[in-house]
């Protein structure tokens, strides 16, 4: 009895689902769903410089769009940093852990949220100026930012 009901529901939903089914979502969809930037609108073509300093001393200088998070910068520029951003910026891991200089850390517009702090607690080699890259949004003020990628992420590549 109940079984039949379900299949009836399933069937009717099925037709509904067929009508409204988007086959996979494009990246732009995600963007509209979860704006990665919290308060700074992504201005067109406005770029700033960021330097990633890897554990072996290698420096990667790159350009970042204003409004992107550091994780976006790594992904969009195909910076090959092993294991970086495993959870895709959903604050469930700590692989995008970065270490900032004290003055940069202090001038970030927003402190780490409770959610970020919970994850930072689980980061390897936590320092006083640690943050998660997925939560740092690039702004014009941060032009020339230099960040350190902690040891654990990249030495696996050597």
């Amino acid at each position: 009895m109940s079984l039949r009901n379900i299949f009836r529901t399933v069937r009717s939903t099925h037709s509904y689902l067929l009508r409204y089914n988007y086959l996979g979502a494009s990246f732009s969809n995600y963007k509209s769903v979860v704006p990665l930037s919290t308060n700074i609108p992504a201005l067109k073509d406005e770029k700033v410089k960021v330097t990633f300093v890897l554990n072996d001393g290698k420096r990667i200088e790159t350009e970042a769009k204003v409004g992107d998070s550091l994780l976006d910068v790594v992904v969009n520029n195909d910076l090959n940093i092993e294991g970086y951003g495993a959870c895709e910026g959903t604050l469930t891991c700590s692989t995008c852990h970065v270490i900032l200089k004290q003055e940069d850390f202090d001038r970030l517009p927003e402190e780490a949220s409770d959610e970020e702090r919970d994850m930072l607690d689980l980061a390897y080699g936590l320092t006083d100026t640690s943050r998660l890259g997925c939560q740092i949004i690039m702004s014009k003020d941060l032009d020339g930012l230099e960040i350190q990628i902690p040891e654990t992420i990249n030495d696996a590549r050597s």
Partner: peptide
């Protein structure tokens, strides 16, 4: 001796 981040240990 060497705790690692996610993914990292894969190829180590």
């Amino acid at each position: 001796q060497r705790p690692r981040s996610t993914h990292a240990a894969l190829e180590t």
